[in-house]
Amino acid sequence: MTRLAREFHSVVCIKQVPDSAQIRVHPVTNTIMRQGVPTIINPYDLFALEEAMRLRDEYGGTVTVLTMGPPMAEDALRRALGLGANRAVLITDRRFAGSDTLATSFALSKALTRIGEEHPIDIVFTGKQTIDGDTAQVGPGIARRLGLNQLTYVAAIDALDRDGATITLRRRSEGGVQVLRSRLPCLITMLEDTNTLRRGTIQDMLRAARAPVTTWSAEEAGIADPMQCGLRGSPTVVKRVFAPRPRADKAEMVVVEGKTPAQTADAVLDLLFAQSPNLEAALSARFKS
């Protein structure tokens, strides 16, 4: 994916996910009850979308949103258009069903290659992770397949030099923040709480309802070998789904009736230190010096 000196172009990968706050598990069959559960854009992806739009507003150019999913994933794309994205691409095919992260990054990287052929890409954005699969593996998978510089957990983009094709940014790492300089094109997974999502303008909202969404089948996305898609292209398989086993014993309850808060607190400490004499010793030792 070589970048040509044309207008600035970011592609943001977004995933449509069930609003997990409203997910219920069937008490008998242990299956997820999806019926009637509203879908949303994966919340982490909105930080990526906003960052891409912020760069576009500063440097000009285009923001494309891309998703792989069932036909109804078009809703997520229209929502992104309503927020201000310029173009939307949906890849949808029954052969994508059951994709693990390796198969997902394969399909998305093919679609990105096709998009890039028509309109060279400077930055591919993804969210940090999703709220359903929650693996954080798709971003690195895409970067590796397309040979893009992989920049994960990005907290801030400090500078972008389009002529020199360099980018300077801050990346969260253990115990601190790395300030990195890398080259375009690159893949960025954006950290949460790094920006504030804009409200779409009235014009964007109106446009979103009518705007065309480019829809590709596997073949149209440039996938010649369906063996790498969906279940067949997924080395991982889910063998068993089950409910966590509840703990047998409940908490020992501290009697509070007729006690002042101070007496209750003392009772808690008595029980605590009786259950764990080591704890009292460790705590006391800590403050001795």
Binding site: K250, A265, L271
Partner: peptide, 30 residues
């Protein structure tokens, strides 16, 4: 309370300061 070992059915706003005071009293040097 299904996961806790010790449970207190009370207002946290009064128990938290009481616990802090109790620990402070009973831990040497605290």
């Amino acid at each position: 309370f299904d996961v806790a070992h010790l449970g207190v059915v009370a207002d946290a706003l009064t128990i938290l300061p009481a616990l802090a005071d109790a620990f402070a009293r009973r831990l040497p040097g605290r």
